[in-house]
């Protein structure tokens, strides 16, 4: 377990170093999230009542589209650079490769989500600086990354790799997304644990199931 963690952190550190050097994924994904959030401002007049009702949905649509775009690049970049074989040649448990990439995806998504908070405040007067919302967002992001990292690795071996991830990801992640949107609405309504506790538990259960399942099957996903 210690060696799995060490290998995972090695991959994670490499991904962070590459991203800090190029910033190609962070900037493109952040720009996309901003555009999605901005477009919704033209769809309706953002009154306080309407924002309270559909605000969480807008937030999660922006987050999910962004996540799909970001996750698609996780293994695609390794594939395009030809470095995926370098990872596969490493004498480390396959779950270390999964865990390393998962940490990279979670970091990317949490960073973009955090950077989007002021944008939602400016565009919709929607303050997301709420401890319960942040708990829901972090838990849901882990689940999104758990599923997305696995499916990103599957998609990279196919010809339709650009479109396969959303096709695979969205139906499987649906319970998670329902929990995230509904739980966020309860959290932002000021319901606290009594309102969103059940949804948070559902999200955490989803996270655990998919983290375990994905770790177990990742070896077969990487096979050629």
């Amino acid at each position: 377990m210690r060696e799995t963690l060490r290998a995972a952190l090695t991959i994670y550190a490499k991904d962070v170093r590459l991203e800090l050097r190029t910033r190609e994924t962070l900037f493109s994904v952040l720009a996309f999230a901003l555009v999605v959030a901005f477009i919704f401002t033209f769809a309706f007049e953002p009154s306080p009542q309407l924002i309270a009702s559909i605000g969480p949905g807008i937030v999660w649509v922006a987050y999910i589209f962004t996540a799909v775009l970001g996750m698609n690049r996780t293994f695609l970049l390794e594939h395009e650079r030809g470095t995926l074989d370098g990872l596969r040649l490493a004498p480390v448990p396959r779950e270390a490769l999964y865990l390393g990439k998962l940490l990279s995806v979670v970091t990317l998504l949490v960073t973009v989500e955090a950077l989007m908070l002021p944008a939602f405040l400016v565009l919709y007067d929607l303050s997301l600086f709420n401890v319960w919302f942040i708990a829901i967002a972090v838990a849901a992001t882990v689940g999104i990354a758990a599923v997305g990292t696995l499916f990103s690795a599957i998609a990279v071996h196919t010809r339709a790799r650009e479109v396969l991830l959303p096709i695979l990801f969205l139906p499987v992640a649906l319970p998670l997304l329902i929990g995230a949107v509904t739980g966020s609405r309860e959290a932002l309504d000021g319901e606290g644990w009594s309102g969103m506790g059940g949804w948070l538990q559902l999200i955490v259960a989803f996270d655990i199931v998919f983290l375990v399942l994905s770790s177990l099957v990742f070896e077969y996903v990487l096979e050629e």
Binding site: E3, R6, A7, T10, I11, K14, R17, L18, R21, T22, R81, G82, T83, D85, G86, L87, L89, A90, P91, V92
Partner: peptide, 27 residues
Amino acid sequence: GYAGHGSLLYDDLTPEENLRFYARLHG
């Protein structure tokens, strides 16, 4: 040890950084 058609190197890292990364992965 395997070297194929591709270099398996990260273009935006230096050779030294690439090799340190792979050395760590190989323990």
